[in-house]
Amino acid sequence: MSYTINQLSVFLENKEGRLDSVLKTLGAGDVNIVALSLADSSEYGMLRMIVSEPEKGVMVLKEAGYMAMLTEVIALRVPHAAGSLSKAMHAIMETGVNIEYMYAFANGEDASAVLKCNDAEKAAEALRKSGFDLYEADEAYHKVVI
Protein backbone atom coordinates (compact mmCIF):
# COMPACT_ATOMS: atom_id res chain seq x y z
CA MET A 1 0.00 0.00 0.00
CA SER A 2 1.49 3.32 -1.02
CA TYR A 3 1.16 6.25 1.26
CA THR A 4 2.54 8.84 -1.14
CA ILE A 5 0.02 10.83 -3.12
CA ASN A 6 0.08 13.15 -6.10
CA GLN A 7 -0.12 16.87 -5.61
CA LEU A 8 -1.04 19.13 -8.51
CA SER A 9 1.38 22.08 -8.80
CA VAL A 10 0.86 25.06 -11.10
CA PHE A 11 3.26 27.89 -11.98
CA LEU A 12 1.48 31.22 -12.00
CA GLU A 13 2.84 34.44 -13.39
CA ASN A 14 1.82 37.43 -11.31
CA LYS A 15 -0.82 38.63 -13.69
CA GLU A 16 -4.31 39.72 -12.92
CA GLY A 17 -6.82 36.89 -12.96
CA ARG A 18 -4.37 34.00 -13.31
CA LEU A 19 -5.48 32.22 -10.10
CA ASP A 20 -9.13 32.73 -10.90
CA SER A 21 -8.55 31.36 -14.37
CA VAL A 22 -6.81 28.20 -13.07
CA LEU A 23 -9.63 27.55 -10.63
CA LYS A 24 -12.18 28.05 -13.39
CA THR A 25 -10.34 25.65 -15.67
CA LEU A 26 -10.30 22.97 -12.97
CA GLY A 27 -13.97 23.59 -12.23
CA ALA A 28 -14.91 23.28 -15.87
CA GLY A 29 -12.93 20.01 -16.02
CA ASP A 30 -14.90 18.73 -13.02
CA VAL A 31 -11.74 18.47 -10.92
CA ASN A 32 -12.49 19.16 -7.27
CA ILE A 33 -9.94 20.81 -5.00
CA VAL A 34 -9.68 19.30 -1.52
CA ALA A 35 -6.62 21.18 -0.28
CA LEU A 36 -4.75 24.20 -1.54
CA SER A 37 -1.72 26.33 -0.78
CA LEU A 38 -0.40 29.34 -2.64
CA ALA A 39 3.26 30.26 -2.27
CA ASP A 40 4.57 33.40 -3.87
CA SER A 41 7.76 35.15 -4.82
CA SER A 42 7.75 38.76 -5.98
CA GLU A 43 7.22 37.75 -9.60
CA TYR A 44 5.35 34.51 -9.66
CA GLY A 45 3.30 32.18 -7.53
CA MET A 46 3.18 28.45 -7.01
CA LEU A 47 -0.22 26.94 -6.52
CA ARG A 48 -0.18 23.51 -4.87
CA MET A 49 -3.32 21.46 -4.58
CA ILE A 50 -4.67 18.09 -3.60
CA VAL A 51 -7.46 17.39 -6.07
CA SER A 52 -9.97 14.66 -6.81
CA GLU A 53 -8.27 13.58 -10.06
CA PRO A 54 -4.64 14.81 -10.27
CA GLU A 55 -3.87 13.36 -13.75
CA LYS A 56 -6.97 14.91 -15.22
CA GLY A 57 -6.11 18.17 -13.47
CA VAL A 58 -2.69 18.28 -15.15
CA MET A 59 -4.25 17.48 -18.49
CA VAL A 60 -6.93 20.17 -18.44
CA LEU A 61 -4.45 22.78 -17.20
CA LYS A 62 -1.84 21.94 -19.83
CA GLU A 63 -4.48 22.10 -22.50
CA ALA A 64 -5.36 25.57 -21.27
CA GLY A 65 -1.68 26.55 -21.58
CA TYR A 66 -0.56 26.35 -17.93
CA MET A 67 2.65 24.95 -16.59
CA ALA A 68 1.34 22.17 -14.35
CA MET A 69 2.95 19.08 -12.91
CA LEU A 70 2.41 16.31 -10.37
CA THR A 71 4.57 16.17 -7.27
CA GLU A 72 4.84 13.24 -4.87
CA VAL A 73 3.82 14.29 -1.35
CA ILE A 74 2.45 12.68 1.79
CA ALA A 75 -0.73 13.69 3.60
CA LEU A 76 -0.60 13.22 7.32
CA ARG A 77 -3.42 13.17 9.84
CA VAL A 78 -2.36 15.15 12.87
CA PRO A 79 -4.38 14.57 16.06
CA HIS A 80 -5.67 17.71 17.76
CA ALA A 81 -3.32 17.49 20.68
CA ALA A 82 -0.47 19.76 21.69
CA GLY A 83 2.87 18.50 20.40
CA SER A 84 1.46 16.14 17.73
CA LEU A 85 3.03 17.93 14.78
CA SER A 86 6.28 18.25 16.66
CA LYS A 87 6.36 14.47 17.16
CA ALA A 88 5.77 13.92 13.47
CA MET A 89 8.56 16.33 12.51
CA HIS A 90 10.87 14.62 14.95
CA ALA A 91 10.16 11.22 13.41
CA ILE A 92 11.05 12.57 9.98
CA MET A 93 14.10 14.42 11.20
CA GLU A 94 15.57 11.25 12.69
CA THR A 95 15.55 9.59 9.26
CA GLY A 96 17.58 12.44 7.80
CA VAL A 97 14.85 13.28 5.28
CA ASN A 98 14.37 16.99 4.47
CA ILE A 99 11.01 18.70 4.30
CA GLU A 100 10.92 21.06 1.31
CA TYR A 101 7.60 22.64 2.22
CA MET A 102 4.41 21.90 4.07
CA TYR A 103 0.92 23.25 4.45
CA ALA A 104 -1.62 22.36 7.09
CA PHE A 105 -5.12 23.13 8.19
CA ALA A 106 -7.31 22.15 11.09
CA ASN A 107 -10.96 21.42 10.62
CA GLY A 108 -13.09 19.16 12.80
CA GLU A 109 -11.54 16.50 15.02
CA ASP A 110 -8.16 16.20 13.36
CA ALA A 111 -5.77 18.45 11.50
CA SER A 112 -4.15 17.53 8.22
CA ALA A 113 -0.72 18.36 6.88
CA VAL A 114 0.62 17.94 3.34
CA LEU A 115 4.39 17.46 3.27
CA LYS A 116 6.84 17.60 0.38
CA CYS A 117 10.03 15.75 1.34
CA ASN A 118 13.14 14.86 -0.59
CA ASP A 119 12.31 11.20 0.13
CA ALA A 120 8.57 10.72 0.46
CA GLU A 121 8.67 6.92 0.88
CA LYS A 122 11.18 7.07 3.68
CA ALA A 123 9.30 9.84 5.49
CA ALA A 124 6.02 7.92 5.15
CA GLU A 125 7.59 4.80 6.58
CA ALA A 126 9.06 6.70 9.55
CA LEU A 127 5.75 8.38 10.32
CA ARG A 128 3.83 5.10 10.15
CA LYS A 129 6.34 3.45 12.46
CA SER A 130 5.83 6.27 14.94
CA GLY A 131 2.10 5.57 14.89
CA PHE A 132 0.94 8.40 12.62
CA ASP A 133 -1.91 7.91 10.22
CA LEU A 134 -1.31 8.77 6.56
CA TYR A 135 -3.95 9.26 3.92
CA GLU A 136 -3.94 6.84 1.04
CA ALA A 137 -4.41 8.29 -2.43
CA ASP A 138 -8.12 7.62 -2.87
CA GLU A 139 -8.89 8.82 0.58
CA ALA A 140 -6.77 11.94 0.22
CA TYR A 141 -8.18 12.98 -3.16
CA HIS A 142 -11.72 12.91 -1.82
CA LYS A 143 -11.70 13.31 1.91
CA VAL A 144 -8.85 15.44 3.17
CA VAL A 145 -10.41 18.43 4.74
CA ILE A 146 -7.99 21.27 4.88
Binding site: Q7, S41, M46, R48, M69
Partner: peptide, 15 residues
Protein backbone atom coordinates in the same frame (compact mmCIF):
# COMPACT_ATOMS: atom_id res chain seq x y z
CA UNK B 1 10.33 31.05 -20.76
CA UNK B 2 11.08 28.02 -18.61
CA UNK B 3 11.07 24.67 -20.31
CA UNK B 4 8.66 22.06 -19.00
CA UNK B 5 11.21 19.40 -18.19
CA UNK B 6 13.12 21.64 -15.82
CA UNK B 7 10.12 23.11 -14.11
CA UNK B 8 10.00 22.50 -10.41
CA UNK B 9 7.28 23.29 -7.92
CA UNK B 10 9.94 24.25 -5.41
CA UNK B 11 10.51 28.00 -5.40
CA UNK B 12 14.05 27.44 -4.14
CA UNK B 13 14.92 25.59 -7.36
CA UNK B 14 13.24 28.16 -9.59
CA UNK B 15 15.11 30.95 -7.81
Amino acid sequence: EVDEKYFSDEIRKLE
